[in-house]
Amino acid sequence: MPIRPGDQIVHKAAWLYYTHGLRQDEVARRLDISRASVALYLRKARESGIVTIATSTHLFASDVLARRVEDTYGLAGVWVAPETGPVFEPAIEIPALAASVFLSLAASGQKIGIAWGRTVYSIADVMSYADLQDVTVVQLCGNLGAPYSYRPDQCTMEIARRLNAKGLNFYAPLVLSSERLARELRDEPVIREQLAGVSDCDLALFSVGMVDEDAHVVKCGAMTADEVHALRDRGAAGVIAGQMIDATGELLDCDYNRRVISADFASFRHIPKRMMVVQESAKLDPLKAALAGKFATHLVLSQSMAERLLAEAADAAA
């Protein structure tokens, strides 16, 4: 029987505790969650009948695959959505799994940074409500004027609502018309303070964007398709928080990036837990670029994408 995405972490905890023989504190460290959460998941596993001699062959395959991705790419945690059953719908199953994982990483007293995009908003849309205390959810990049539900401010405020948290938006555009205007706006005290506070976050949620005509920066009017194609020809491989990166995960040296109001990458990488979610199969190259740049500590992806990542790593090592 296929594992429901929302139960994936319950299965992981049960597998590590009952099959691998880890103690509850060891399971907590491995999954980067609290010991109380481990106890809760183990009780749920017993009550729901998850704990059986035949504990989930689907989970085992995904568990082994996830561990291989962790080891290959140096990640703290990987969750793989198993592609089982007659129909696998990544746009449904991966956000559900990611929402469950995100809630296991979020805790009272945290400051949480949120990027933007369809994937992030899909996660927010299926996320259960959590009664956390003293949590602030902050926007990691400037805003866009396009009327899409996955605008940066919309993503931030919806997740804040789900967490019973205070939301803090960026009251600045994502892209300015000139480098001079961008520099001046970054020097404004309110914006400067908000950008400087990114490194104080405890947790970040984001995805990586593609560099083509389907990119969010094109659909939301920040760039034209021709401009994106030109940057791709110059080496752009992905988009992180509205900024173009090359295949090594470094900030692309281009006029567009110099006009963007977004989190400094050094500050971004300073966040202890950085959860990246990828659902589209077309994002292999952007995903590889983001991993090369060490943007993620935690990753949620599909089984086929995990297998492709490992195949690429094996080819590179050959």
Results as ranks from 00 to 15, higher is better:
Y41N: 05
S62E: 05
T52H: 05
S62C: 05
A61G: 10
L65F: 09
R43L: 01
D25R: 09
R30H: 15
Y41G: 01
L16D: 06
L16T: 03
R68N: 14
S56E: 15
R43K: 13
R46K: 04
T72V: 04
A39E: 15
E47A: 08
Y41T: 00
L16R: 12
D25M: 03
V38N: 03
R35N: 12
F60K: 08
D71Y: 01
I50N: 05
Y41K: 01
V27L: 04
V64K: 10
T55Y: 14
A45R: 02
G21F: 08
T55I: 13
F60N: 03
A66I: 00
T72D: 03
T52S: 15
L31G: 12
L31P: 12
V38C: 04
L59M: 13
V51T: 06
H20D: 14
R67P: 04
E26S: 08
G49L: 06
D63S: 05
R30T: 15
R46W: 03
D63I: 00
R30Y: 14
A28E: 09
H20F: 04
E26P: 06
S48W: 01
E26T: 02
H58W: 11
T19D: 14
L22T: 08
R30E: 15
R67M: 10
A54D: 15
E70R: 01
I53Q: 14
D25V: 03
T57Y: 11
V69N: 12
L42C: 02
A36G: 12
G74F: 00
V64Q: 13
R30P: 07
S37Y: 06
T55M: 15
F60W: 02
R67I: 04
L16W: 14
V64I: 09
R35G: 13
E47L: 04
R29C: 06
